[in-house]
Structure formats: C-alpha cells, structure tokens
Amino acid sequence: MKVLLVEDNKELAESISDYLRGEGYLIEKAHTVYDAEDKLIAFSYDCILLDLMLPDGNGIDLLRSIKQDKINSGVLIISAKDALDDKVAGLEDGADDYITKPFHLSELHARLKAIYRRKKLDGSNAVVFNDISLDTNRMEVMVNDALLDVTRKEYDLLLYFIINKDRVLSRQAIATHLWGDQADDLANFDFVYQHVKNLRKKISAAKGNDYIETVYGVGYKFNSLKQA
C-alpha cells in the first residue's frame, strides 16, 4: 500500500513512517501543502494521512482540492484540534476518518487498514491469519473454520491484534482503541485485561492457536511465530 504522509512535524512524520514501513507500506512524506500538491500531481496513493495545520496552509483546503480532482485515495485526517467543528468539517469534506493527536501508532495503523478495507482497495473484506479469519463486513470470527462466539469488543480486539501483529500493544493503546474518547481513566486497564483474557479463553476453547502473549509491565503482543 502506498501512503502519502502530510505532516509538518518532522519527528512525528519520522515515527509514523518508521512504523508503517515496518508493516510493509510505501511511505512518502510531505511537510507542506506545496510539497503535497506536487506529489499528488506526479503520483497516485492509496491513502493520504493529512495533518490539518500546515505551515503554508490548511489541510482542509488541500482535502477539498483532492476531492475536486477526483483523486481516489482514502484520507485520514490527523489533527491536534479535537474541536468538534474541525472533525465534522473534515468528514463532510470527504475525509474517511479522523484521529486526534496524540495517538498510538498501532491505532493509526488500524484506522488506515480499515479505510483501505472499506474502499476495497485489496478487493476483500476478510482478514486472515493462519487458522483465524475475520469477516469485516459481518464482524464474525472463524477459528479453524468454525464460527467463534465473540462480543463486539472481543472482535475489535482480535482485529486490532492481527493488524498490528508482532507489535507490542500497550494497555493504553488497547483501551483507546476499544473505547475511544471514553477511555478516560486508567481503571480501564482492568477491563483490557479481562477482555484479553476472555478472548484468549474463547480461541483456545475452539482449539485455535493462542498467539496472544503478555508483555510484562507494558501490555500484549500477537506473536505470529508462536506455536501451540
């Protein structure tokens, strides 16, 4: 997947491209609106990560011109402003999703993947890993071809793990993913623990491979190399 990252903060842009490159993405960076327009004329991208406050202009204006030129890339807005107006304006102007700073890179990745899937750019709505497969349309989980009875949160959690497989996911990142703005206190860690525990139990009960392991002190990791 080819991604254009429009972000004026070089350190943050570096982190994002590091992470996404690790996931096998092709990343190009633009630090200004001018750079971005330049790149958009010459190349096409599957997804655009767009910061709203740029030194030479507003990301919203860039978004409008992207939509005007009928560029068929998914757009994920990254903004420090969680001003409701910005969010609404961005989505109305054709952005696919909106994420506020500071965010977890794993969350950004999950959102990006979701846009990619929604746009059916890879022509499939299935996320498959070995014996586990998820149908993202019906929000169903199959383990060894048998339907697994999971709650909505457990489904979200498993999808998040598989998308960010072999990455250490902190409890904060998981809590934010599951509850969004409502992950407003650290007491949610207990809930993260319980959800992970229940999910692992259910997968094991279905004779599935338990890929999820605890990373002491930090969180969890979906270890793709782990063998039962």
């Binding site: 982190s15 420090a80 500071p102 977890h104 794993s106």
Partner: peptide
C-alpha cells in the same frame, strides 16, 4: 502541546 506529546508517545511506542 498535543503535537510534542504525539512525538513523545510515538517514539516511546517504537
């Protein structure tokens, strides 16, 4: 404030 926080958080995650 949010931007440097985002930088710190992302570096820490890496």
């Amino acid at each position: 404030l949010q931007t440097p926080l985002a930088v710190v958080q992302s570096k820490l995650e890496l």
